[in-house]
Amino acid sequence: MNQVLDILINGLALGSVYALVALGFVIIFKASGVMNFAQGSMLLFGGYLTAVLHEHIGFLAALAVGVLATAVLAGAVDRLLLRGLDPSQHHILTILTIGVDILIVTELARRIGGDLLSLGDPWGNEVVALGGVTVPVSRIACIVVSVLVIGAVFAAFRYSSWGLSLRAAAEDREAAALMGIPLSRIRTLAWCLAGALAALAALFLTAFPAPGLERTTGQIALKAFPAAILGGMTSPPGALVGSLLIGVTEALAAGYQSELSGFGRGLGDVAPYLVMITVLLIRPHGLLGTKEAVRV
C-alpha cells in the first residue's frame, strides 16, 4: 500500500513538471500553430542561469532572473526568427525551432560540460512523513507550485484579455485580426509565457532526489511532447490530463521494474511513448483534442 502511495506521489510530481512544459507546448501551438522543439533548450537555459546565479544573488532572485530571461529569450526567438515568415507554414516554423534548439543546447552543453549543477533550492534533501510514507519536501513543493502556476495560467486563459485574444486567435486568425486583436503581440506573449514555464520546470526537475542540472536535462521536454499530443495539442486541460497520465505511468513502470523485467530494463523511459502510441491508435486527435471539421 505504501509503495503504491509512494509511486503515486512520485508520478504526480513528475506529471506536474511535465504539465508545466506541456502547457508551454500547447500555448505556443494555440497561438502560432508551431510545435516548439526549442522548449528543451529553454528549460536548460533557465536552469543554467539559475544555477550560475544563485550563489551570487540568492535563490529566489536567481530563479526570478532565470524565469524572466528565459521568457525574454523565447520572445526573442519569436520576434527575431519566426516573424516575417509566413505564419501558415507550420512545418517550416517547426523545423526552424529545431535549428534554434540545436544552437542553444550546443552552447549550453559546452558550458556545462560534464558537471552537475545545483540550482540552490531551499528544500535540499529534507523529507517529511506523510501517512506512512516519506516524501521529499521538494516533491511537495513541486506539486504545490505547479498547481498554483497552472491555475494562474488557466485563469489567465479564462479571464484576462490576453487569454481571450489567444482563444479568439486560435479559433479563427482572420476574424481575430479583423476584430483588432494584435496577433503578433499575442503570439510573442505566448512564447514568453511558455519560456517562463519551461524555466520553472527546470527547477523541479533538478531538485532532490534528482542529482542536479546536467547537459541532458533539456531532453526531458521530449517526454512532455507525448503528454501534449495525447491530451490533444489544442487543449490545455488535455495537456494537464496527458501529463498526469504520463507521469504516473512512468512512475509505475519505474516502481514495478522488477515485476516488469520481461520487457527489459529502463521501461520507465519509454512508457510515455508507449502510452502516446496507444492513445493515438484509438483517438488520432488526442484525448480532448477537437476533431477538425473541414468545410468545402
Binding site: 527489459g264 523511459d269 502516446m276
Partner: peptide, 29 residues
Amino acid sequence: PVSGRVRGIYLGVATLALVFIGHHVMLNA
C-alpha cells in the same frame, strides 16, 4: 494505423516514440 491517420507535425511527434522505443529494444534484445 498511425502514419495513415495522423497528420503533419503530429506525426513528427508520434514518430519520436519510435526512436525511443527502438532504442529500448536495441539495448534489451
